[in-house]
Design a protein around this nucleic acid. Structure first.
Lengths: 367, 367
DNA sequence: TCCAATTATGAGAAGACGCGACGTAAAGCT
DNA sequence: AGCTTTACGTCGCGTCTTCTCATAATTGGA
């Protein structure tokens, strides 16, 4: 049974209308009062009241007036996206990527570094913290300028932001990653699985913008599945949704095994395949078959609108995708669309940014 | 991006508070004004206004006042659950079950009949209609007294209520079942897959009351999986979520095959197994293994809190459940709880009632 | 340069809603 | 009969939104 929030008095109306105004302001960019009111479905006066409230809270300010039009020039307002910032991190087995974004989600600073996959947890964390704080310092933010931070990583991450299992990163299991990144900046901190965050990023600004139900297939050195239903992340009770490790699928080959047998580097195989090398093409097909096998389980269970393929192997491009489509068509009655990730390697950190922004929108902006 | 409904004026507050009052009234049974106001988080006056509105709409009425207490007797109000009714149907391959329920979801009338599995669609539908109208006539409802109707059936049912695939029922594929049942009573009509509706019923009043994410395993002559996440039904893009038919699981035996090999009737096998018959126990174990295989795919993908086992085979009881738990533990890292269905054979029609009530709550009561 | 047309602003009035307060009504208890 | 208890009903206040109308600040053409 749905809970009906405490509704009460007219202050709720105020909040609701301020929220609608803020929403319209963020969606439509700098606008005049009249435009804003229409977009929010309110009267001009109400929008004005809401705007003065937002201005007081530092979330809106007057911009240069319209020019070139007849009549009295209208005051224009803009969303102060610089009012706050969030940090998004990708702490992977071989790579660390830190992003600082404003309230529009525009990435202002970015630090990327390669790390050894055997690097111990403490040093890995120190590097991640340094990368993130470097972003913050470069942007010259005031103290408390970071409103939320999220880290994505390989492994199972539970609801509280703790890594409950990680095979790829040494010393990672049991780590309270969400709590840690929060402490770095004195703000709420979160953590999530990398494939899940990648799915979030693709839904936010990537290939899955127009879709509410999607499966993300992370393939490469890091592998996993991300699941978004109704536009919301599904991590499951323990955070292990989409972890098919123990699913007894017939003919399910691990990607790394396929490549190891090929005895060649992934990039090399893809290049050869594109050049028409028969054996390389066979390897790509086996890769595609393995990915389709895993994806088919998710597809048959949740029947999504779209499958997005990302991660290192997605660099094989349409070659891989075509084979995956063919294999999926064998495994599903009405197979969904399959498409490439838009952001590639950046999607995990971007998804982390989005998750942090979700928290800001909810808790701090009241959206 | 969440849409921010048209918020506007104070009429919204009215609606919100009326809604809160209705909610409190339905939850708490007959109550005095003061109790109602407290439960809804409103002032007494506001609750009174809301109640007069509800009374006008026929949804509330004054009940006998409290007695035996000191002080002026308080007026009491009750929800008029008899203000409207819904029909829930289970049109299965071998059984038809029709239910008529009031707005509390209490089943008032019920008609059940066995049918031949080869019965053509037209005759099956005629029987279903007769069973349902018999319920309505027995209750002596006024014209327009049925506010919504839902039918559950075997096969894939898409969002519009059309059966897109059905192997078990002849002539069923392509049928606009939802539209049909709506036309029978001149009200909105819906249709859904049987396992999905069973999941809804268990979440509503059965074994899954306290849980928001669950997988329902329908086992027996009818088989399938139902999926509820965040308390909401997940049917997927085409309605085929949970249809694992093509999933290449190793060692996945079809229940019917297992029983056929055993050469005995299901009931007989269960009875023998309970008596300790070794061979019967082995058959039950193979059944459990097959069910666990299928369930494991759903469990690994969505990581639910609970698995509910229903359908004919669930009559094997704890015997089957215990084996399923053991097998699931082999297939999942942290296996969820497994429990028996509360309603057994009635769960599909009950779920249909709930789905019809959902529509009424949303569209007619504005909840 | 001046005037009309255009567009937005700002103040005031009206309508709706919810809530607190206060007096009143209706019961039980002594 | 009188006191206590509990709830009812009404009044007034504050908040919120919208409508209206006079006013202000531009542009473009005469």
């Amino acid at each position: 049974m749905r809970s009906l929030g405490v509704t009460n008095d007219t202050a709720l109306l105020r909040r609701l209308n301020t929220r609608a105004t803020l929403h319209a302001l963020r969606q439509g960019g700098p606008q005049t009062l009249t435009q804003l009111a229409r977009a929010a479905g309110l009267s001009r006066q109400t929008a004005e009241v809401a705007l003065s409230d937002l201005t007081e809270r530092g979330l809106a300010e007057e911009a240069a007036p319209t020019e070139g039009r007849a009549g009295r020039p209208a005051r224009r307002f803009r969303f102060r996206s610089e009012a706050g910032h969030v940090v998004g991190l990708d702490v992977g087995p071989r790579r660390i990527l830190a992003m600082l974004a404003d309230l529009d989600g525009d990435v202002i600073e970015e630090r990327r570094l390669d790390v050894d996959e055997h690097l111990p947890a403490a040093e890995r964390l120190a590097l991640a913290e340094r990368a993130a704080t470097a972003c913050v310092e470069a942007a010259e933010l005031a103290r408390g300028g970071v409103w939320a931070a999220t880290a994505g990583t390989s492994g199972v991450v539970d609801r509280s932001g703790r890594v409950s299992v990680s095979h790829l990163i040494p010393g990672w299991t049991g780590l309270d990653l969400g709590g840690l990144v929060g402490r770095w900046f004195g703000c709420p901190g979160f953590a999530a699985n990398d494939a899940n965050l990648a799915a979030v990023a693709e839904h936010w600004r990537g290939s899955a913008r127009h879709v509410e139900d999607l499966v993300y297939v992370l393939s490469g050195y890091r592998a996993g599945h991300g699941l978004l239903l109704d536009g919301r992340l599904r991590t499951g009770r323990t955070g292990s949704a989409g972890e098919l490790g123990r699913l007894p699928l017939t003919g399910w080959e691990d990607s790394s095994v396929v490549l190891a047998e090929a005895g060649r580097d992934a990039e090399e195989v893809f290049r050869a395949a594109r050049a028409g090398d028969e054996r390389a093409l066979a390897v790509v097909d086996r890769l595609a078959h393995g990915l389709a096998r895993g994806a088919s389980a998710l597809v048959l269970v949740v029947d999504p609108e779209l499958v997005v393929v990302g991660g290192g192997f997605s660099r094989a491009g349409e070659l891989l995708l075509g084979r995956m489509r063919a294999h999926l068509a064998q495994m599903c009655l009405n197979p969904p669309e399959v498409t490439l990730s838009t952001f590639g390697e950046e999607s995990i950190a971007l998804g982390a940014v989005r998750m942090a922004l979700d928290h800001v929108d909810r808790e701090r902006l009241g959206l």
